[in-house]
């Protein structure tokens, strides 16, 4: 464990908690893409299958459980508890255009052709594109509440910190996970234009992000 990965995990946890609390306390999921949240729940489900078979550390197990519980709880809030506030007309990204290529690629490019390894690879590739329905929804509605932009900021920051973690691990222990690194770079690139808007607009104190 290094400081970049720890800060990355904390940033990821903060993002997930921000989103959950925003929906739970405002009793509304307006402006939130339910499709992205379903994809994230799928990412955690396919990545943490080894939750009960291989024990790494208390931290590892606890974080996996927390991520799984909060992601499914968020999907529950969006599609069941507060479904009347779910803006399905704006959440129209065709997720099959993500799932099919990601599934195909995970069969082609993986470290080991075994179910658990292919599912892990699937989760890595899927995570890199899972935010696209949310970003697409924001461009479609042309705006986002500032709490939603804080969620996206910490979510984007988490994988950027993981990139620093991989640089660190490469230089200190020769660790290099090509699939995770390439996907992490792609994932972080998708946030770049959002990061620019976040810094130039939201941090200037605007109540919400309105796209030009």
């Amino acid at each position: 464990m290094n400081v970049f990965r720890l800060l990355g995990d904390v940033s990821h946890l903060v993002a997930i908690i921000i989103l959950f609390l925003k929906i739970f306390r405002s009793k509304s999921c307006a402006g939130i893409s339910g499709k992205s949240q379903v994809l994230f729940a799928l990412v955690f489900t396919t990545r943490y299958l080894d939750l009960f078979t291989s024990f790494i550390s208390i931290y590892n197990t606890v974080m996996k459980v927390v991520f799984l519980v909060l992601s499914y709880a968020t999907v529950y809030l969006i599609y069941l508890r507060f479904r009347s506030s779910y803006d399905s007309e704006s959440d129209t990204f065709r997720v099959e255009f993500l799932l099919v290529p990601v599934a195909g690629l995970s069969f082609l490019e993986n470290y080991d052709f075994t179910p658990i390894e292919i599912l892990w690879t699937f989760s890595i590739y899927l995570e890199s594109v899972a935010i696209l329905p949310q970003l697409f929804m924001i461009t479609k509605t042309g705006e986002a509440e500032s709490i939603t932009t804080h969620y996206l900021f910490f979510l984007g920051l988490y994988r950027a910190l993981y990139l620093a973690n991989w640089v660190w691990r490469y230089h200190t222990e020769g660790f290099f996970d090509q699939i995770a690194v390439v996907s992490g770079v792609v994932q972080t690139i998708f946030y770049c234009d959002f990061f620019y808007l976040y810094v130039t607009k939201v941090l200037k104190g605007n109540s919400k992000l309105t796209l030009p």
Binding site: D50, I56, S57, N165
Partner: peptide
Amino acid sequence: KLNEKKKDEL
């Protein structure tokens, strides 16, 4: 192909 590494990352 990467050697069999323990997946210690989240």
